[in-house]
Amino acid sequence: MTSTAASAATTDKWSAQLRAHGRRVTKQRLAVLDAVDHSPHAGADEVAAIVRTTLPDISLQSVYVVLTDLTETGMLRRIEPPHSPALYETRVDDNHHHAMCTGCGRIEDVDCAVGHAPCLTPSNTHGMTIQIADVLYQGLCADCAAKPDTAVKTS
Score class of each variant (00 low, 15 high):
1 M>D: 10
1 M>P: 14
4 T>M: 09
5 A>T: 08
5 A>N: 11
6 A>E: 11
7 S>M: 11
8 A>N: 09
9 A>C: 07
9 A>Q: 14
10 T>R: 15
11 T>V: 10
11 T>L: 08
12 D>P: 02
15 S>F: 10
17 Q>H: 12
17 Q>L: 15
18 L>G: 01
20 A>I: 03
23 R>Y: 04
25 V>S: 06
27 K>N: 11
28 Q>I: 06
29 R>P: 03
30 L>T: 00
32 V>W: 01
32 V>N: 01
37 D>C: 07
37 D>F: 13
40 P>K: 03
41 H>W: 15
42 A>H: 02
52 R>P: 07
53 T>L: 15
54 T>C: 13
57 D>K: 14
61 Q>Y: 08
62 S>Y: 03
63 V>K: 00
63 V>W: 00
65 V>M: 14
69 D>S: 13
69 D>I: 01
72 E>Y: 08
76 L>Y: 00
79 I>M: 10
81 P>V: 02
83 H>R: 15
84 S>V: 07
88 Y>D: 00
90 T>P: 00
92 V>H: 03
93 D>F: 04
93 D>N: 12
94 D>E: 12
95 N>L: 01
95 N>G: 04
101 C>Y: 02
101 C>N: 04
102 T>Q: 06
103 G>S: 07
104 C>L: 06
105 G>T: 04
107 I>A: 06
111 D>I: 08
111 D>Q: 11
112 C>Y: 03
114 V>Q: 10
114 V>E: 09
116 H>V: 12
117 A>Q: 02
118 P>G: 01
120 L>G: 00
121 T>H: 15
121 T>K: 15
122 P>G: 09
126 H>T: 05
127 G>E: 04
128 M>V: 09
128 M>F: 14
128 M>S: 10
129 T>G: 05
133 A>I: 01
145 A>W: 07
145 A>E: 11
145 A>R: 15
149 D>G: 06
149 D>C: 07
150 T>A: 11
151 A>L: 11
151 A>Q: 13
154 T>R: 11
